[in-house]
Design a protein around this nucleic acid. Structure first.
Lengths: 346, 346
DNA sequence: AAGCGTTTTGCACGCGCGTGCAATTTTAGC
DNA sequence: GCTAAAATTGCACGCGCGTGCAAAACGCTT
């Protein structure tokens, strides 16, 4: 027994159940049983074990335990766009949900070249009990393997891809209604020269943008132009300037993310001296905290983050704890929040 | 061999090294060795094993592996204030650093009643190779146990607490210089009626606020009043109104967090019609993205997040990989970024 | 006090893996 | 072609833990 007391010698072995057993004068199985709620053990020995465990500061090794129990109480959280503050919000909420129900969060970021499949494969080594995928979806083959191997999946922000239906649960927003509502709001204001600001030129249009466009193009005498603002304030500011200085400046802009919308508002007001909302309506998406600031008072659609997260977490843990639960799909509405960058509704 | 092909039957056992060995026609040790870089194995068998592994989609079970290797390649990230966007920024960066060097991030939030020690104890069960503590520090006893058991610690934002010196590494900012520089900047502008906006009334003053106060109180004919803004825009807005409507309104405000500073600016300009910076100087702290927005152009001190994180990650992994490295302390400077809410320096 | 049923306990095994050691094969040397 | 050295392989063990099973201890009745 080296370094049992006093100076911390070498990386002295961590305390194991055997150490506790020895100190308590019982068998190692007794220690196991003392820590297992339903197990068959007398009050007396349990107390002895607990006392010894407390004295040694014993913590069971979950890695070893998981070998037997076949569950790690680990949930993998795979996120693309970890830089986006709106996603890190979700992260905190997910973590809280999981922690409350006795699970820990293993964080994985999908960045740059390495694909979702690659990351997911590597997480696999930790044998998490389930995984949440945010803004990224794996190949069908891999998803099937995950589910077959007892690792349920829930996907958030998967877009219109329906290949995973029935395999992975899916929680996201009703983009169709959202795009429609925003389009009609602008039309009702009498706007006819409309602009849409998307994220990046290379990527396919987001669902909400697509539905917005669809409705707009159905309207008569309406023109729609598209710009790109990289999801950022600066990008939105620049895109706003390009649009408003062009030959046919818009009288309404829908930005698929709030930071870009705030940039457009500032470009219009502070750089060009335009009046918002009189000369230009601006609508964003997400309802980030800054959207409510008095300086901007941005009209935007609220992304119900808390609800999304709590539904996704529930759906996942449900399947983790009773594997026969089928995968479900849930779509939530995004209420439009009228503030000061659109005209008051008649 | 059930469900080897076709319908996913019951939670069919995950693929193990034995399965691979059987398919490759070698012993299980051979599989182990094929996957261990330096191991003694012929090119031929390695190829056979790799082929079989690929065919079965084999992923080694890290839990089992960690039992032998005594390392999990897991780093625990313990954060208080996970709601604070500035901290979630760090989170993403940490994760990236760890992932790049082959470690995964186990996320832990310290919230409400449950203390750091409690959380840290529970993480212990996962035997992480190291831990980062953000805005929270454990008891000395627990920290000692962590280090003794081979789990190095690095603490960020620990404040002035020096009890852990030599046990846990420490990376944070030079609050003393920061407070001093901001105070002197405002004094140089000729401000004499100064206000400080802190987070919460109950908590002890933050380091930077304390140093700021110290300098101010040394100056002649300067009065300092303190308000509280809960670290938020709304809180800062309200605090700003209280100050500016009082009998002795300040002509300069230092807010220990940017969101509050932005609230003060808006309260002054938009609600009270004051001119910033002519009638009121405002300085914040962090340099969040919104501070650079044209609408506010907030003068603030930049918290060097990327540098903090990269130094902290390096310090930690260094100790993880060679346990004899001593704990170190590193303090970084926060450059003051003059923008539009302070007077141009003479 | 003996008999029976009911806890409680310890033993032994295996979860999936890495690794020392001895047996085996391959290679080199003459 | 034969032997010694080197490379490769399989066996067996243990990492820390949960759990079925049979032995032991206990409680109760007659």
């Amino acid at each position: 027994m080296s370094g049992e007391h006093g100076v911390p010698s070498r990386p002295s072995r961590r305390i194991t159940a055997s150490d506790v057993a020895r100190l308590a004068g019982v068998s190692r199985s007794a220690v196991s049983r003392a820590l297992t709620p339903g197990a068959s053990i007398s009050e007396k020995t349990r107390d002895k074990v607990m006392a010894a465990a407390a004295e040694l500061g014993y913590q069971p090794n979950l890695m070893a335990r998981s070998l037997m129990t076949r569950q790690t109480r680990l949930i993998a959280l795979v996120m693309a766009q970890l830089r986006n503050p709106f996603f890190t919000d979700m992260l905190g909420m997910f973590n809280r949900h999981f922690q409350e129900r006795g699970y820990q969060t293993l964080l994985l970021a999908v960045e740059g070249a390495q694909g979702v499949d690659e990351v997911l494969e590597s997480v696999f080594q930790y044998q998490p009990d389930g995984a949440v995928l945010v803004s990224c979806s794996p190949s069908l083959a891999l998803a099937e393997r995950c589910v077959r191997d007892g690792m349920p999946l829930v996907v958030i922000d998967r877009g219109a891809d329906t290949a995973l239906d029935g395999i992975a649960s899916h929680v996201w927003i009703r983009s169709d209604r959202l795009g429609l509502e925003i389009a009609e709001r602008l039309l009702a204001e009498g706007r006819r020269r409309v602009a849409l600001i998307e994220g990046y030129a290379g990527e396919p249009l987001s669902e909400r943008a697509r539905c917005f466009m669809e409705r707009m193009l159905r309207a008569e005498g309406v023109s729609v132009q598209v710009e790109y603002g990289q999801y950022s304030y600066a990008g939105g500011y620049a895109a706003g300037l390009r649009l408003l200085r062009s030959a046919s400046p818009p009288d309404a802009v829908f930005c698929i993310a709030d930071p870009m919308a705030l940039g457009v508002v500032d470009a219009a007001r502070l750089e060009l001296g335009l009046r918002v909302p009189e000369a230009l309506s601006v609508i964003g998406f997400s309802d980030i905290p800054a959207a409510a600031w008095r300086s901007h008072a941005l009209t935007t659609a609220r992304l119900p983050i808390a609800e999304l997260v709590s539904h996704a977490a529930d759906a996942l843990l449900q399947r983790v704890e009773s594997p026969d639960t089928p995968a479900q799909t849930l779509l939530l509405d995004c209420p439009l929040i009228p503030r000061g960058t659109t005209l008051p509704q008649p």
